[in-house]
Protein backbone atom coordinates (compact mmCIF):
# COMPACT_ATOMS: atom_id res chain seq x y z
CA UNK A 1 0.00 0.00 0.00
CA UNK A 2 3.12 2.21 0.08
CA UNK A 3 2.96 3.41 -3.51
CA UNK A 4 -0.06 3.69 -5.76
CA UNK A 5 -0.96 0.57 -7.68
CA UNK A 6 -3.00 0.85 -10.83
CA UNK A 7 -5.03 -2.22 -11.63
CA UNK A 8 -6.45 -3.07 -15.07
CA UNK A 9 -7.68 -6.12 -16.93
CA UNK A 10 -5.53 -7.14 -19.89
CA UNK A 11 -6.79 -9.37 -22.69
CA UNK A 12 -5.17 -11.70 -25.22
CA UNK A 13 -3.54 -9.56 -27.90
CA UNK A 14 -2.79 -6.56 -25.65
CA UNK A 15 0.82 -5.49 -25.99
CA UNK A 16 3.22 -4.26 -23.34
CA UNK A 17 6.26 -2.28 -24.50
CA UNK A 18 9.04 -2.05 -21.95
CA UNK A 19 11.69 0.63 -21.60
CA UNK A 20 14.78 0.80 -19.40
CA UNK A 21 12.86 2.02 -16.39
CA UNK A 22 10.32 -0.76 -16.39
CA UNK A 23 10.35 -4.33 -15.17
CA UNK A 24 7.82 -7.08 -15.51
CA UNK A 25 7.04 -9.84 -13.01
CA UNK A 26 4.21 -11.96 -11.59
CA UNK A 27 2.77 -15.41 -12.05
CA UNK A 28 1.94 -14.64 -15.67
CA UNK A 29 5.50 -14.15 -16.88
CA UNK A 30 5.96 -17.77 -17.94
CA UNK A 31 2.43 -18.48 -19.05
CA UNK A 32 0.54 -15.33 -19.94
CA UNK A 33 3.16 -13.32 -21.80
CA UNK A 34 4.66 -14.02 -25.19
CA UNK A 35 7.78 -12.17 -26.21
CA UNK A 36 7.15 -10.66 -29.62
CA UNK A 37 10.54 -8.96 -29.90
CA UNK A 38 13.24 -7.56 -27.63
CA UNK A 39 11.04 -5.22 -25.63
CA UNK A 40 7.50 -6.03 -26.69
CA UNK A 41 5.36 -8.62 -24.95
CA UNK A 42 1.91 -9.88 -25.91
CA UNK A 43 -0.54 -10.74 -23.15
CA UNK A 44 -1.93 -14.20 -24.02
CA UNK A 45 -4.61 -14.81 -21.38
CA UNK A 46 -7.20 -12.72 -19.59
CA UNK A 47 -5.00 -11.26 -16.86
CA UNK A 48 -4.83 -8.77 -14.08
CA UNK A 49 -2.20 -6.08 -14.51
CA UNK A 50 -0.88 -4.12 -11.57
CA UNK A 51 1.41 -1.22 -12.33
CA UNK A 52 3.43 0.10 -9.42
CA UNK A 53 5.13 3.47 -9.91
CA UNK A 54 8.24 4.00 -7.85
CA UNK A 55 11.59 5.20 -9.14
CA UNK A 56 11.16 2.22 -11.48
CA UNK A 57 7.88 1.14 -12.99
CA UNK A 58 6.94 -2.40 -12.00
CA UNK A 59 4.34 -4.34 -13.98
CA UNK A 60 2.80 -7.47 -12.54
CA UNK A 61 0.79 -9.84 -14.73
CA UNK A 62 -1.45 -12.41 -13.05
CA UNK A 63 -3.55 -14.72 -15.21
CA UNK A 64 -7.24 -14.85 -14.22
CA UNK A 65 -7.97 -18.20 -15.81
CA UNK A 66 -6.20 -21.26 -17.02
CA UNK A 67 -5.27 -24.84 -16.32
CA UNK A 68 -2.88 -25.62 -13.51
CA UNK A 69 0.64 -26.32 -14.81
CA UNK A 70 2.72 -28.31 -12.30
CA UNK A 71 5.90 -26.75 -10.91
CA UNK A 72 8.49 -28.56 -8.84
CA UNK A 73 7.89 -27.90 -5.17
CA UNK A 74 4.16 -27.10 -5.52
CA UNK A 75 1.84 -28.52 -2.88
CA UNK A 76 -1.16 -30.02 -4.66
CA UNK A 77 -4.31 -31.87 -3.67
CA UNK A 78 -4.86 -34.90 -5.88
CA UNK A 79 -7.50 -37.56 -6.39
CA UNK A 80 -6.44 -41.13 -7.14
CA UNK A 81 -7.58 -41.79 -10.69
CA UNK A 82 -6.08 -45.18 -11.44
CA UNK A 83 -3.88 -47.84 -9.91
CA UNK A 84 -1.01 -49.74 -11.51
CA UNK A 85 1.04 -52.56 -9.94
CA UNK A 86 3.41 -50.25 -8.10
CA UNK A 87 2.15 -46.68 -8.57
CA UNK A 88 -0.94 -44.52 -8.64
CA UNK A 89 -2.11 -42.11 -11.34
CA UNK A 90 -3.32 -38.94 -9.67
CA UNK A 91 -5.66 -36.30 -11.06
CA UNK A 92 -4.19 -32.94 -10.09
CA UNK A 93 -6.48 -30.81 -12.32
CA UNK A 94 -3.66 -30.24 -14.77
CA UNK A 95 -3.51 -31.35 -18.41
CA UNK A 96 -1.30 -34.22 -17.23
CA UNK A 97 -2.06 -37.06 -14.82
CA UNK A 98 0.63 -37.25 -12.12
CA UNK A 99 2.41 -40.36 -10.85
CA UNK A 100 2.93 -41.30 -7.21
CA UNK A 101 5.08 -44.36 -6.62
CA UNK A 102 4.12 -46.84 -3.94
CA UNK A 103 7.70 -46.93 -2.68
CA UNK A 104 7.53 -43.18 -2.06
CA UNK A 105 4.21 -43.50 -0.26
CA UNK A 106 5.27 -46.27 2.14
CA UNK A 107 8.79 -44.92 2.45
CA UNK A 108 10.57 -48.16 1.58
CA UNK A 109 10.86 -50.49 -1.42
CA UNK A 110 7.49 -51.83 -2.53
CA UNK A 111 7.08 -55.40 -3.74
CA UNK A 112 3.88 -55.89 -5.75
CA UNK A 113 4.27 -59.68 -5.51
CA UNK A 114 3.80 -59.71 -1.75
CA UNK A 115 1.95 -56.47 -1.10
CA UNK A 116 -1.33 -55.03 -2.40
CA UNK A 117 -1.07 -51.40 -3.45
CA UNK A 118 -4.80 -50.77 -3.08
CA UNK A 119 -4.70 -51.23 0.65
CA UNK A 120 -2.70 -47.98 0.91
CA UNK A 121 -4.55 -45.81 -1.58
CA UNK A 122 -7.48 -46.65 -3.80
CA UNK A 123 -9.39 -44.92 -6.59
CA UNK A 124 -11.21 -41.86 -5.22
CA UNK A 125 -8.84 -41.35 -2.31
CA UNK A 126 -7.60 -37.81 -1.77
CA UNK A 127 -3.90 -37.06 -1.20
CA UNK A 128 -1.93 -33.97 -0.36
CA UNK A 129 1.38 -34.20 -2.21
CA UNK A 130 4.31 -32.23 -3.51
CA UNK A 131 5.41 -32.05 -7.14
CA UNK A 132 8.85 -33.68 -7.12
CA UNK A 133 9.63 -33.54 -10.84
CA UNK A 134 8.09 -32.11 -13.97
CA UNK A 135 9.51 -31.14 -17.35
CA UNK A 136 6.47 -31.46 -19.67
CA UNK A 137 7.99 -34.40 -21.55
CA UNK A 138 6.89 -36.94 -18.98
CA UNK A 139 4.13 -37.14 -16.42
CA UNK A 140 4.65 -35.07 -13.26
CA UNK A 141 6.05 -37.09 -10.37
CA UNK A 142 4.63 -36.59 -6.87
CA UNK A 143 6.04 -37.24 -3.42
CA UNK A 144 4.37 -37.42 -0.01
CA UNK A 145 7.66 -37.53 1.88
CA UNK A 146 7.30 -34.29 3.81
CA UNK A 147 5.40 -32.90 6.75
CA UNK A 148 1.64 -32.59 6.30
CA UNK A 149 1.56 -34.67 3.13
CA UNK A 150 -0.29 -37.95 2.58
CA UNK A 151 -3.78 -39.41 2.48
CA UNK A 152 -6.73 -37.27 3.53
CA UNK A 153 -9.37 -39.07 5.52
CA UNK A 154 -11.74 -36.28 6.48
CA UNK A 155 -12.71 -32.79 5.47
CA UNK A 156 -14.45 -31.22 2.58
CA UNK A 157 -12.96 -30.49 -0.81
CA UNK A 158 -13.67 -27.22 -2.62
CA UNK A 159 -12.56 -26.62 -6.20
CA UNK A 160 -11.73 -23.14 -7.43
CA UNK A 161 -9.97 -21.65 -10.44
CA UNK A 162 -6.24 -22.49 -9.96
CA UNK A 163 -5.15 -19.01 -11.05
CA UNK A 164 -7.13 -17.55 -8.16
CA UNK A 165 -5.50 -19.59 -5.42
CA UNK A 166 -3.07 -16.74 -4.82
CA UNK A 167 -5.95 -14.58 -3.63
CA UNK A 168 -7.13 -17.27 -1.21
CA UNK A 169 -3.75 -17.05 0.46
CA UNK A 170 -3.37 -13.31 0.09
CA UNK A 171 -0.43 -10.99 0.57
CA UNK A 172 1.68 -12.31 3.44
CA UNK A 173 -1.07 -14.88 4.10
CA UNK A 174 -3.47 -12.09 5.08
CA UNK A 175 -6.56 -13.67 3.49
CA UNK A 176 -6.00 -17.20 4.71
CA UNK A 177 -5.26 -16.02 8.26
CA UNK A 178 -8.46 -14.01 8.28
CA UNK A 179 -10.44 -16.98 6.90
CA UNK A 180 -9.11 -19.32 9.57
CA UNK A 181 -9.76 -16.86 12.33
CA UNK A 182 -13.28 -15.99 11.21
CA UNK A 183 -14.52 -19.47 10.29
CA UNK A 184 -12.51 -21.52 12.80
CA UNK A 185 -11.85 -23.93 9.94
CA UNK A 186 -8.51 -25.43 9.01
CA UNK A 187 -7.58 -24.69 5.36
CA UNK A 188 -5.15 -26.75 3.31
CA UNK A 189 -4.58 -24.96 0.03
CA UNK A 190 -3.45 -26.91 -3.04
CA UNK A 191 -2.02 -24.55 -5.64
CA UNK A 192 -3.74 -26.69 -8.27
CA UNK A 193 -7.10 -25.17 -7.35
CA UNK A 194 -8.32 -27.43 -4.56
CA UNK A 195 -8.87 -26.38 -0.97
CA UNK A 196 -9.40 -28.86 1.84
CA UNK A 197 -11.52 -27.65 4.73
CA UNK A 198 -11.82 -29.12 8.18
CA UNK A 199 -14.44 -27.23 10.15
CA UNK A 200 -15.91 -27.44 13.65
CA UNK A 201 -19.48 -27.66 12.30
CA UNK A 202 -21.57 -27.76 9.12
CA UNK A 203 -22.74 -24.12 9.32
CA UNK A 204 -19.20 -22.76 9.51
CA UNK A 205 -18.13 -25.10 6.74
CA UNK A 206 -20.92 -23.78 4.53
CA UNK A 207 -19.89 -20.19 5.25
CA UNK A 208 -16.25 -21.06 4.47
CA UNK A 209 -17.29 -22.56 1.12
CA UNK A 210 -19.38 -19.48 0.26
CA UNK A 211 -16.43 -17.27 1.17
CA UNK A 212 -14.09 -19.24 -1.11
CA UNK A 213 -16.55 -18.98 -3.99
CA UNK A 214 -16.83 -15.25 -3.41
CA UNK A 215 -13.04 -14.87 -3.45
CA UNK A 216 -12.97 -16.79 -6.73
CA UNK A 217 -15.66 -14.57 -8.29
CA UNK A 218 -14.12 -11.30 -7.11
CA UNK A 219 -10.43 -12.20 -7.27
CA UNK A 220 -9.67 -9.28 -9.57
CA UNK A 221 -11.07 -6.59 -7.28
CA UNK A 222 -9.34 -4.41 -4.71
CA UNK A 223 -10.05 -4.46 -0.98
CA UNK A 224 -11.06 -8.09 -1.11
CA UNK A 225 -9.89 -9.26 2.32
CA UNK A 226 -11.97 -6.64 4.12
CA UNK A 227 -15.01 -7.38 2.01
CA UNK A 228 -14.76 -11.13 2.58
CA UNK A 229 -14.38 -10.57 6.32
CA UNK A 230 -17.52 -8.48 6.37
CA UNK A 231 -19.30 -11.13 4.29
CA UNK A 232 -18.39 -13.90 6.75
CA UNK A 233 -19.50 -11.84 9.75
CA UNK A 234 -22.82 -11.07 8.05
CA UNK A 235 -23.35 -14.75 7.26
CA UNK A 236 -22.63 -15.65 10.86
CA UNK A 237 -25.11 -13.06 12.09
CA UNK A 238 -27.71 -14.30 9.58
CA UNK A 239 -27.36 -17.81 10.96
CA UNK A 240 -27.49 -16.67 14.55
CA UNK A 241 -23.93 -17.86 15.23
CA UNK A 242 -22.98 -14.44 16.56
CA UNK A 243 -24.82 -11.26 17.41
CA UNK A 244 -23.99 -8.17 15.44
CA UNK A 245 -21.46 -5.91 17.07
CA UNK A 246 -20.33 -2.78 15.35
Amino acid sequence: MSSSVQRTIRLPGDQIVLDKNMSIEGAGVGTSLYRLNENTYVVTTVSLQDVEENEKKKIRIIPLKGRYMPKEGDIVIGIVYDVTLSSWLIDIKSPYLAVLNASDYIGKPFNPATDNIRKYLDIGDVVIAKVAQFDRTRQPLLTVQDKGLGKVISGSLVEIEPSKIGRVIGKKRSMISMLMEQTKCDFVVGVNGRVLLRCPDAELEYIAILALKKIEAEAHTAGLTERIKEFIINEKVKRGLIKYES
Binding site: L11, P12, G13, T31, S32, Y34, V42, T44, T45, V46, P63, L64, K65, G66, R67, S163
Partner: peptide, 11 residues
Protein backbone atom coordinates in the same frame (compact mmCIF):
# COMPACT_ATOMS: atom_id res chain seq x y z
CA UNK B 1 -10.60 -20.17 -25.88
CA UNK B 2 -9.87 -16.94 -24.00
CA UNK B 3 -12.52 -17.86 -21.43
CA UNK B 4 -10.78 -21.22 -20.95
CA UNK B 5 -7.52 -19.40 -20.26
CA UNK B 6 -5.76 -20.87 -23.28
CA UNK B 7 -2.86 -18.61 -24.27
CA UNK B 8 -3.39 -16.78 -27.56
CA UNK B 9 -1.33 -14.20 -29.39
CA UNK B 10 -4.54 -12.34 -30.13
CA UNK B 11 -8.27 -12.86 -30.31
Amino acid sequence: LADAGIPMLDL
